[in-house]
Simulated assay, not measured.
Amino acid sequence: MECLLGLLKVRVVRGLNLAICDPLTHSSDPYVVLRHGSQKVKSSIRYHSINPEWNEELTLSITNMMLPVKIEVFDKDTFTKDDSMGDAEFGILDFIEIAKQELSHIGDGAVMKTIHPEEENCFATESQITWKDGKVSQDIVLKLRNTETGEIILHLQWVNIPGVAR
């Protein structure tokens, strides 16, 4: 049995300039799927939008901080298989290592680490891991792969589990 490290709350904020999968309406019906290991969580569908706003919180139980979180965006179809609108992934190692530290002495709003877009990650802009309101959080903009266009904006927050060692 794997040891639970904590919970990763992922707020799927919005999509930007997603692919048009329904040419007749010049839109799509997107939803987001997050995967970590064998876990899979899914957002609701936003109909007729290529710039959807979800502001939905999805939670992943983290047992292996070496595994990335994988994201897929799909266009919901009624009579055929849902269309892929792109994918991305991001590592959580730095985020969790910071979250596991004793940070009560750190000033509110402190930037703990800045992650820059690189060839090996899907970050569209630099992203800061911060300590705010007693929580470790991170805002991320990911550029979707395997598609012509699109970005996904996420907000991460770590939740320690009482009784689980830091």
Rank of each mutant, 00 (worst) to 15 (best):
Leu8His: 02
Val13His: 14
Arg14Ala: 10
Arg14Ser: 15
Gly15Leu: 01
Gly15Glu: 02
Asn17Trp: 07
Thr25Trp: 15
Asp29Lys: 04
Leu34Lys: 14
Ser38Arg: 08
Lys40Phe: 12
Arg46Trp: 08
Arg46Gly: 02
Tyr47Val: 08
Ser49Asn: 14
Ile50Leu: 07
Pro52Gly: 02
Pro52Ala: 04
Glu53Leu: 13
Glu57Arg: 05
Leu58Gly: 14
Leu60Arg: 08
Ser61Tyr: 05
Asn64Val: 06
Asn64Ala: 07
Met66Glu: 13
Ile71His: 09
Phe74Met: 13
Thr78His: 14
Asp82Pro: 05
Asp83Val: 03
Met85Ser: 08
Gly86Ser: 10
Gly86Lys: 07
Gly86Thr: 11
Phe90Arg: 00
Gly91Ser: 04
Ile96Gln: 00
Glu97Ser: 00
Ser104Tyr: 11
His105Met: 08
Ile106Gly: 03
Ile106Met: 14
Ala110Ser: 13
Met112Gly: 00
His116Phe: 12
Glu119Phe: 02
Cys122Trp: 00
Phe123Ser: 01
Phe123Lys: 00
Phe123Thr: 00
Ala124Glu: 03
Ile129Phe: 03
Thr130Cys: 11
Asp133Glu: 08
Gln138Ser: 09
Val141Asp: 03
Lys143Tyr: 01
Arg145Tyr: 05
Asn146Ser: 07
Leu156Glu: 01
Gln157His: 06
Val159Asp: 04
Asn160Val: 03
Pro162Leu: 13
Val164Pro: 01
Val164Glu: 04
